[in-house]
């Protein structure tokens, strides 16, 4: 693996944040942010998943292992899940996730989960900006 690429922030580069967005709510919300021409930092890369419940904690660990500066998981609000209960699993899994990250020596502030509906474009913009600022503050490990 190319080490130079892995030290984005250390070299004064921009951090890269990976975002898992569910197809029905947050991905739609992100599309709406685009439709409304909202501006947010270009550090985020979105992986589209059918449901936030599809996100395996393994994916997050892999991202950090490869050099991600931050990871976020976004899905429908609890109770609004397209698949009825998927995001309840997400919620439970990622409460545990923070402990696992800490155990692995990764600052849990690099990981965030948020419920963003298809209409909450501004929330998506604000959330991405907020996480970006937090991650920039932490520097690169």
């Amino acid at each position: 693996m190319d080490v130079a690429n892995r030290t984005n922030t250390a070299a004064g580069g921009e951090p890269k944040i990976l975002a898992f967005c569910c197809n029905w709510c947050t991905y739609t919300g992100a599309d709406l942010a685009g439709l409304n021409r909202m501006k947010y930092p270009a550090n985020v890369r979105v992986v589209r998943v059918p449901c936030s419940g599809r996100v395996n904690p393994q994916f997050i660990l892999r991202a950090f292992a490869r050099g991600a500066d931050g990871v976020v998981v976004c899905g429908c609000h609890p109770g609004d899940c397209h698949y009825a209960t998927g995001n309840f699993f997400t919620r439970r899994r990622f409460m545990l996730m923070r402990g696992l990250l800490e155990f692995n020596g990764i600052d849990p502030r690099r990981f965030h989960a948020r419920w963003i509906s298809g209409s909450e474009a501004a929330k998506f913009r604000d959330f991405v900006s907020e996480v970006c600022a937090i991650v920039k503050g932490l520097g690169h490990e």
Binding site: M1, D2, N5, R6, K16, L18, R45, V47, V49, N56, Q58, F59, R62, A63, R66, G67, A68
Partner: peptide, 13 residues
């Protein structure tokens, strides 16, 4: 799983 992992890996190759 392998597809999503490939997507992640692709970002940092």
């Amino acid at each position: 799983n392998v597809q999503i992992l490939e997507e992640i890996d692709a970002l940092w190759t």
